[in-house]
Design a protein around this nucleic acid. Structure first.
Length: 440
DNA sequence: TCTGGGGTCCTAGGACCC
DNA sequence: TCTGGGGTCCTAGGACCC
């Protein structure tokens, strides 16, 4: 009870109860939930890219791995079901998952399509349940209503909750109360900490820090002297003191939009590479228009065979999301990075410094008629794309990238009906029905 | 260790100004 | 013109995440 008289600064550092919910083989699970006949089979998504993007646990048991080439998948498992990714459907399942989590607290962070955090601190009273019971109830509701399992971690911080949810997978539930932290971290290699990538892991090894326990056992002065801010925060998190807040803001806007395309075999052909770049630009602009955003900065980058990117950026005098406005910039930037005789394996476009298109006033010097024309043209392009598929109408500049007739979907009407039946009212309104693509 | 595409955040260093 | 300190803004690049 002494805590009740502490200052507000102390109140904020009261131990929190954070839940991390992580979908098990999320994309493959969504497919299986939608098509029960796939249950127990080797299910793999990523057909459109030629590599495994998500895989069922059955597939994992048979030796399939993420990133594996699909031809290899067929060799190992001739019976594998290989599907095209269907992000619209996955995000509907995702929305459902978060809305179920919100029944227990409003403090929910949609961290990724298949995972999220919930801060249930202070909810024991209102819900008449212990923290563990709340977290278990959350898991149960999600499992039942989604039609597949998630793994759940409960801990005093986000960082520890993430470790907890990964502890036992799939269909796991792991609680790491303050007292148990050291036990869990003593066998955990630093490379498995959220926020530690290959580089930081190597650096930590060089300091003789191999486990998460080694890391949290160092005095903070040592951490402050040897690590930058994010890792100093990580030290607090792993010690059970929550410093990373739950971000409940809905992700409506982007800081940047990028489009990259890798081509095989690599190429040194100027026209071809520029065409790839323009196609990326078209794609990025489509996305920007869909979100009502205009770019004030554009980045062009070329990726060579021996890794390492050559990137260059430019400011845009009049913010735009129309390829017509941006192509001159792209051409100039391209000329500055492109080197003859070099083989490139990918190109990329980044639209950055985004702002809402409603906040852009047409410049006094810009003929208004021309701007309105452009808006009408792209409104028509977007609606055609919406009806018949992406790139139904595309710029001549990207022609060189269209080598064969392409199809947007291999799904049947029956599948669509299945979807509609399974999903709730709100989700139905967001439903996107793919059609065959036509090339004009 | 990479496969591949879409993101965010932090830091160091340079330019410029007072 | 140099000397020096300090702040801000921008850019490039690194690192990590899913």
């Amino acid at each position: 009870m002494i805590g009740m008289w502490e200052t507000s600064a102390h109140l904020q550092s009261f131990p929190r109860a954070i839940v991390h919910v992580d979908g098990d083989a999320f994309f493959a699970s969504c497919e299986t939930a939608l098509h029960p006949e796939l249950r127990g089979r080797v299910v793999v998504t990523g057909r459109e890219r030629g590599i495994v993007s998500s895989l069922s646990y059955v597939a994992k048991a048979r030796g399939i791995r993420r990133g594996m080439i699909l031809s290899e998948v067929k060799k190992i498992c001739p019976d594998a079901v290989i599907l095209t990714s269907d992000y619209e459907t996955y995000s509907l399942f995702s929305k459902r998952m978060f809305s179920i989590m919100r029944r227990f607290t409003s403090q929910v962070e949609e961290y990724g399509i298949d995972e999220g955090f919930a801060d249930i601190t202070g909810m024991r009273g209102p819900l008449h349940m212990s923290y563990e019971d709340i977290a278990r109830a959350m898991k149960k509701a999600v499992d039942e209503e989604l039609g597949f399992t998630v793994s759940v971690g409960l801990a005093p911080t986000k960082s520890l909750a993430k470790i907890a949810s990964k502890w036992q997978k799939p269909n796991g539930f792991t609680s790491v109360p303050g007292r148990a932290i050291r036990g869990y971290l003593s066998t955990l290699d630093v490379s498995n900490i959220w926020g530690v990538g290959p580089n930081t892991a190597k650096y930590m090894y060089s300091l003789g820090i191999t486990t998460a326990h080694d890391f949290i056992s160092k005095p903070f002065e040592y951490i402050a002297a040897n690590f930058s801010k994010p890792h100093q925060e990580m030290w607090y998190e792993l010690n059970g003191e929550s410093v990373w807040p739950i971000n409940t803001e809905e992700k409506t806007s982007y800081a940047s939009i990028s489009k990259t395309k890798t081509f095989t075999p690599p190429s040194g052909n100027v026209e071809y590479i520029l065409a790839q770049l323009i196609r990326n630009l078209e794609n990025a602009c489509i996305k920007a228009r869909r979100h009502g955003l205009v770019a004030r900065k554009i980045v062009v980058y070329l990726r060579t065979q021996q890794f390492g990117d050559a990137a260059i950026e430019a400011k845009i005098t009049r913010a735009s999301n129309f390829p017509h406005d941006l192509i001159p910039h792209v051409r100039t930037l391209f000329k500055n990075v492109f080197k003859h005789g070099v083989q490139y394996r990918a190109t990329g476009i980044v639209l950055a410094d985004l702002q809402s298109d409603s906040s852009v006033q047409s410049s006094l010097f810009e003929p208004i008629i021309k701007m309105e024309k452009m808006q009408r043209v792209y409104a028509a392009v977007d609606s055609l794309d919406e009806q018949y598929g992406k790139h139904t109408v595309h710029l001549g500049g990207s022609q060189a990238t269209f080598t064969q007739t392409q199809y947007a979907g291999d799904r049947t009407r029956e599948t669509e009906r299945q979807k509609i039946k399974l999903l709730g009212e709100t989700e139905r309104q967001h439903l996107y029905i793919p059609r065959m693509m036509i090339t004009v």
